[in-house]
Design a protein around this nucleic acid. Structure first.
Lengths: 136, 136
DNA sequence: TATTATCCTATTGATTTTATAGAGTAAACA
DNA sequence: TGTTTACTCTATAAAATCAATAGGATAATA
């Protein structure tokens, strides 16, 4: 299941990407337009800022804005920040690899074998979609 | 993340599929061979029996065995039973469809749009793999 | 200096996951 | 018929994660 955090984060990014100008948009407005709890959204946008997707401006006329062109924002990067690893098990993860404790040998592990295919399928979707592809 | 339930369930199914004969295998043996908590495995195997993947036999010489030929067991069916919906959001689910409360219109929803592609990518993996493909 | 709006930490409540315990039931076998 | 074996079932509990809330701090603007 997609976490609400990711869902809200994607909606917020798409909302910002669909703005005509590059003017900052306030959390309150995104929260209102996208039906998202404002406080929860605050923490999500903060993490997107800290990871380089968003910029922010404080005070009157402030808010959040996209740093890059939506066409340059890969879904792989967004998903890894919001949802975490794209792989369903750490032993097939490119960016978050970890050995399974219970598994004596990955090379003959049935789960590893299947999840490798799943990872590749998901990666190819996320690599071939940018933020620009999420809006119309 | 893949749940332990699914991971253990897949390993148990693969273990049963790799048996030469069709003789029942005891929970205790699967648990030992695959490093799975026996009590937890019990409940997983029970659910696989109730959903038609496994048969069981009580008493001495009893245990669990595969009902169908591994080649006939699609991963879509296994995953839906063990892990639940293949879709990451209910609004793109084939078998567990549900409308999002917060979303006014799916047709213009950025999350829906992306998750539809993800669903199709995952489905194509699960539809093109059977239990037989998990073993060597 | 007053207002606006982001920044940050802490905490809480709900839900899900991952088991564990223990008694019950059915089959095999001597 | 009685004992052993091994699955069946329900209940419960510990742990982890998720989703949300509270409230004050900080910085920019006018």
């Amino acid at each position: 299941m997609l976490s609400k955090k990711t869902k809200y984060g994607l909606k917020a990014l798409a909302f910002l990407a669909s703005q005509k100008d590059k003017q900052p948009v306030q959390i309150a407005e995104i929260s209102r337009q996208e039906n998202i709890s404002q406080k929860f959204l605050e923490s999500i946008l903060l993490s997107l800022r800290k990871t380089g997707f968003l910029g922010s401006k404080k005070g009157k006329g402030g808010g959040y804005y996209l740093i890059k062109d939506p066409k340059e924002v890969l879904m792989t990067d967004v998903m890894r920040v919001l949802e975490g690893p794209i792989s369903m098990v750490p032993c097939v993860s490119l960016n978050f690899y970890e050995k399974c404790e219970d598994c004596p040998d990955e090379k003959v592990c049935s789960v590893n074998k299947l999840m490798l295919k799943v990872r590749d399928a998901n990666l190819s979707v996320y690599r071939n979609n940018t933020l620009a592809d999420l809006i119309n």
